[in-house]
Design a protein around this nucleic acid. Sequence first.
DNA 1: TCGATATTGATACCAAGTATCAGTAAGTGA
DNA 2: TCACTTACTGATACTTGGTATCAATATCGA
Lengths: 156, 156
Amino acid sequence: MTSSTLSTTRSAEVNLGNALEDRGLRRTTARTAVTDRIEGLSDAFTAEQLCRDLPGVGRATVYRTIRHLVDAGALCKLPILDGAPMYSIARIEHHHHTVCSRCGAVGEFRHSTVERVMRSLANEIDGDIIGHRMEIFITCNSCLAELAAGNSTING
Amino acid sequence: MTSSTLSTTRSAEVNLGNALEDRGLRRTTARTAVTDRIEGLSDAFTAEQLCRDLPGVGRATVYRTIRHLVDAGALCKLPILDGAPMYSIARIEHHHHTVCSRCGAVGEFRHSTVERVMRSLANEIDGDIIGHRMEIFITCNSCLAELAAGNSTING
DNA sequence: TCGATATTGATACCAAGTATCAGTAAGTGA
DNA sequence: TCACTTACTGATACTTGGTATCAATATCGA
Ligand SMILES: [Mn+2]
Ligand SMILES: [Mn+2]
Ligand SMILES: [Zn+2]
Ligand SMILES: [Zn+2]
């Protein structure tokens, strides 16, 4: 993989508790439970998943905390066409997502060419461009491996 | 606007009734009411909007018909981050959407460069790329005009 | 026209998320 | 450290968006 234009570098540290504090919000036990749990997850998650994982925290509080974190830019909210949106820690400033259509794993990427294309589209799109979103749907490597394993079993 | 790479050409005719028939579905009065209404709309719409516009057609039927049309590829389903998905007639084969952040107007566009970038990303993304989605958020021309009018009134 | 079959839509249901609000916990300043 | 103000919590009820059921009805090929 050439890394001249593709970037998946994760910025030094992410502290969701600090992200909330920076917005003038109190550091409560419920919020700490939520942010700790999110930081402990390696993958993207849904709000309901978090609620199940944290039965000691009220549903309203889980949803409110997620909303704060999205507002703070610390979480990405990724719309899923048929289902609840997924959230993941924003590790790269401006970026796009890969979504595995088989297992739902979400990745982040940045590619300068995408941003260059956006600039070049400015003259050709009616109206003022104020932003964009892009998702790439993939079959992730671990799913490819599983599929290969499954096939080889079937095919002998 | 140069049109060498940007395409907003609409394919000859769109007949949603035929799209359903082509799938072996019966041409019923309820379905005809839904498809006629959609064809009469100039803009993207939500399912609930359609239900309100067609009080004579059951909600379940409206939703079912929309689903059929999406499955047939005759309607685009556009996820909206905070709210119900919007639907619009698919006039271009593979394409992307512009969404006005002020009024919600949805447009379609195709740009060869976007597709070229996708191909070039193939080597740099982990896993197999099976598709992509891209939305450009804009302030549309009519909103720009309204904003300009509003400002000039305020500023004398 | 008839009859097998697809469709309809009222109803009940489910999932995701938000408004309320009385009770509780954080922080702040004395 | 305590008291006090204010933010926060979470149970509950509600809303929105959408689906499963199923008896009654419409469609369409024979
Ligand atoms: Mn992200
Ligand atoms: Mn479209
Ligand atoms: Zn996967
Ligand atoms: Zn607009």
